[in-house]
């Protein structure tokens, strides 16, 4: 497993706070604007970055990320361009974990071995592949292993205890808990449901638990940050880019970063505001 991810979670645990994981789509709205955002994310408060690689048919995503993928593809985005953005990011940032996220077919098309080598060379730390459940990710696992790259697995409200064993077998980095049955950005689960889900997962794994899908506002992020090890936000940032379709690109950069700061502040103070976590 990637050392960078483990180190990041260890230092956040010492500080008794959750991580903010920010998702953006590579090449959205274009390569250079995306790079500017990517480059500035850690300073704005992103603890871990998920960099989406675009796919024409994002079946698990809601409208926000679907549109982001279309913008990215229109701007010439691809898995190769995504890896290139990751490489440029790593040139100036040595310790923020960066995880690639997307669908299987661009990887199948490149080949699993070639993808693993390119991921390693880019300085990315691992991947989340939405449509590669444990039953289907053996080729990726074998290709990632020699490079120490992480495969981040997903658990959902429909994952029962028996399946959870499957999901955890071979999981590394952290466990991504999809808080609601649905697509990205739709709605958020209740704080109570999330708390009980996190406790259930903590009983069976030592991996950090990240919670995502539907988290858009600081209040919701803070509620999750009290219990989970990380909060994942994506659609809310992507929407900031969509809000300035024809405006100056600097506006898109500024809007995304302002939103990141807002959510980061909420995540950082979530536990201190109402006492520390038991």
């Amino acid at each position: 497993m990637s050392a960078r991810i483990a180190q990041r979670f260890a230092s956040l645990a010492r500080a008794n706070r959750a991580a903010l994981i920010t998702y953006i789509m590579a090449s959205d709205p274009d390569h250079e604007t995306c790079f500017e955002i990517l480059h500035a994310l850690p300073a704005a408060g992103a603890d871990i970055i998920e960099l989406g690689f675009p796919f024409s048919d994002p079946m698990a995503d809601g409208p926000s990320i679907q549109k982001a993928a279309l913008r990215a593809l229109k701007a010439g985005g691809s898995l190769r361009q995504t890896l290139e953005l990751a490489r440029r990011f790593r040139e100036s940032n040595a310790d923020t974990p960066l995880i690639l996220m997307g669908y299987a077919n661009p990887i199948e098309s490149m080949g699993y071995e070639a993808f693993a080598q390119a991921t390693h060379a880019s300085g990315a730390d691992g991947a989340i592949v939405v449509d590669l459940p444990p039953e289907e990710d053996t080729p990726l696992r074998s290709a990632f292993a020699p490079h120490g790259l992480s495969i981040i697995r997903l658990a959902t409200p429909t994952t029962d205890d028996k399946r959870l064993t499957n999901v955890l077998d071979g999981a590394s980095g952290f466990l991504y808990y999809v808080s609601v049955a649905g697509v990205t950005g739709a709605n958020v689960a209740t704080a109570q449901a999330i708390e009980s889900a996190v406790s259930r997962l903590k009983r069976v794994t030592a991996l950090p638990i990240a919670v995502g899908f539907g988290v858009r506002e600081p209040q919701a992020a803070a509620a999750i940050a009290k219990h989970a090890d990380a909060v994942v936000v994506g659609s809310a940032f992507v929407d900031e880019i969509a809000a300035v379709p024809d405006g100056p690109k600097a506006d898109a950069v500024e809007r995304v970063l302002r939103k990141v700061q807002l959510l980061s502040e909420a995540v950082r103070t979530a536990r201190t505001k109402e006492g520390t976590r038991a």
């Binding site: 590669l132 997903l154 429909t158 994952t159 399946r163 049955a181």
Partner: peptide, 20 residues
């Protein structure tokens, strides 16, 4: 048993759908 016809087929779905 894994739904394969040689290398084809399989169950390439998001985790939410796997139990289904």
């Amino acid at each position: 048993s894994e739904g394969r016809f040689g290398p084809y087929g399989g169950r390439f779905v998001a985790e939410t759908l796997m139990p289904l």
